[in-house]
Structure formats: C-alpha cells, structure tokens
C-alpha cells in the first residue's frame, strides 16, 4: 500500500532534507537527508524493502539497521499524523 501524506500536509525540499508543513495546525517538521530519501521512496509507491535497499545503496548501513530506522520513521510520521492511516 502506497504511503500518502494527509491532504493538508505540504512538502518543501531544502539543502538539508525536506520540510513538511502541516496546514491543519501550522506545525512544520524537518527531515534529514536519509529520512527524505526514505519518505520519497515510500511516497513514490516503494515498499519498506525498497526503502531499505535505497538506504543501503546510498549509505554505509546494513539492512537490519536500515529496516529498524525505516520502521521508526514510519511510526514517527504516523504519530505526528502527517500520513494517512
């Protein structure tokens, strides 16, 4: 299932990663480069496995650690109600 941002969340790329603006409550969130790569992969329809492959293909990180980190980021995005359930 493709990850989707909530309708009132907009994104902006920066030199450091991505900023998410929650138009509903005015909060904005900064994602670093690896979080941006992960989010972009998932929003483009990629699976968690694909996000892990992108991380391990770009950064010096093993697949187990990368998977933990992808899952943790997904939890953070859901807890912040930035993505659709």
């Amino acid at each position: 299932m493709t990850l989707r941002l909530r309708a009132d969340v907009s994104t902006a790329d920066t030199d450091y990663g991505t900023v998410l603006l929650d138009g509903a409550d005015g909060r904005y969130w900064q994602l670093n480069a690896s979080a941006s790569l992960t989010l972009r992969t998932l929003l483009d329809g990629g699976t968690v496995d694909e996000a892990v492959r992108r991380l391990t293909g770009t950064y010096a990180v093993g697949p187990d650690r990368a998977r933990e980190d992808v899952e943790r980021l997904l939890t953070r995005l859901r807890d912040a109600r930035l993505v659709r359930p």
Binding site: R27, N32, A33, A35, A60
Partner: peptide
C-alpha cells in the same frame, strides 16, 4: 561498483517550529 557509500545518519524527523508562532 566502486561507488562510495555516504556516511550514515539515521533518518530523523523533528518538529522545527510552528507556522502560527512565526
């Protein structure tokens, strides 16, 4: 296959501020 991997920083997301406050 000799592409250098970048140093890894775990994916991080933090609240950077409030549009309302700013």
């Amino acid at each position: 296959d000799s592409r250098e991997l970048q140093a890894y920083e775990a994916p991080e997301m933090f609240e950077a501020g409030s549009f309302a406050e700013d």
